[in-house]
């Protein structure tokens, strides 16, 4: 009568843990929000939120920080998902950044990320007064995330102060805040990329089709395939898009997100591919290779 039995025990444990975390957020914070970035982790997070509060709807809205450079398919998927599930979706773009014409191509990825993601997120959190922001980050994504808390404390001004993080024992989370302070919460902390895909398969969760292999127009840049998603991507002289069978392991702003050549056309194919994977997930993400330990620095500035 239920599909629960089909879930392998370790996924069931991870699922229950994440549901417990989501409920704790709903119970302890005044105004929580779920940061919805449209990727697979967000899809899983949203699915878990639906489960955690069933039969009620999740008691918080979704927030998407739109840089205006996301893949078109991502935006279409976002709008369709919110409409289908009947959940509240807030979309925020940094108006000043937009007015200044900040973009990932001529402004550079570092500035673009700073203004259109980090700044924009802070603006949105302040504007609505959210005191807890739930995100889909995982500890296995990158070395420096291995020690991140599940409830990550942010001082007034959203700064992440490594010295003021609170020890987390058992499943007891210290959620106390003073005015101006906030919390970032990561229910998927203990999931790996493989867990996420296995869960997508087991629970039949919809994700953006960009994750699946398909012939797409791409150009080769800096050792990765960049998709020509719209006419805003300037082509170098002599550079012509070619059709390649590619897919994405992570999704972000299209000029900054590299595709990999792959034949994996379904979540199950991806699980199989990952079992033999020889490249880590972040390898397709250009923002991390900007500088060493850039993630650490971005976090201090309030990047998710």
């Amino acid at each position: 009568m239920s599909r629960r039995a089909a879930l392998p025990p370790h996924l069931r444990q991870l699922e229950s843990e994440a549901i417990g975390i989501l409920r704790e957020v709903a119970a302890e914070f005044r105004l929580p929000v779920l940061l919805y970035s449209i990727g697979k982790d967000s899809s899983v997070l949203l699915h878990l939120a639906l489960k955690a509060f069933y039969p009620a709807k999740p008691p918080f809205p979704l927030l998407h920080i739109d840089t205006t450079w996301k893949f078109r398919e991502m935006i279409a998927f976002r709008n369709a998902t919110a409409a289908r599930l009947g959940v509240e979706l807030i979309v925020h773009t940094n108006p000043e950044g937009l007015a200044q014409g900040i973009n990932p191509i001529t402004s550079g990825s570092a500035l673009h990320t700073q203004i259109m993601k980090t700044e924009a997120l802070r603006q949105a959190l302040d504007k609505f007064g959210f005191d807890a922001a739930i995100g889909g980050a995982r500890r296995d994504e990158e070395k420096s995330r291995a020690k991140e808390r599940i409830f990550s404390f942010r001082a007034a001004g959203h700064s992440w102060e490594p010295r003021h993080q609170r020890p987390e024992l058992w499943h007891l989370f210290n959620t106390k805040l003073r005015p101006g302070e906030s919390m970032r919460v990561f229910p998927l902390s203990n999931w790996t990329e493989l867990d996420v895909w296995q869960y997508v398969v087991a629970e039949n969760i919809e994700v953006v089709p960009l994750y699946f292999a398909k012939d797409r127009p791409v150009v080769r840049r800096g050792g990765v395939w960049i998709m020509v998603d719209d006419e805003r991507l300037p082509l170098d002289p002599g550079e012509t898009p070619e059709l390649r069978r590619v897919r994405f392991r992570t999704l972000g702003c299209y000029p900054l997100t590299g595709a990999i050549e792959s034949d994996a056309a379904s979540p199950a194919d991806i699980v199989t591919e990952l079992r033999g994977a020889r490249q880590s997930e972040r390898q397709g993400r250009l923002i991390d290779s900007d500088e060493d330990s850039s993630m650490e620095r971005k976090k201090r500035e309030g990047y998710f």
Binding site: L7, P8, H10, V201, A202, A268, D269, V271
Partner: peptide, 12 residues
């Protein structure tokens, strides 16, 4: 459809 054999043991 799940090509991945469900690991039978709980997380350690």
């Amino acid at each position: 459809m799940d090509s991945a054999p469900a690991a039978g043991r709980p997380l350690l």
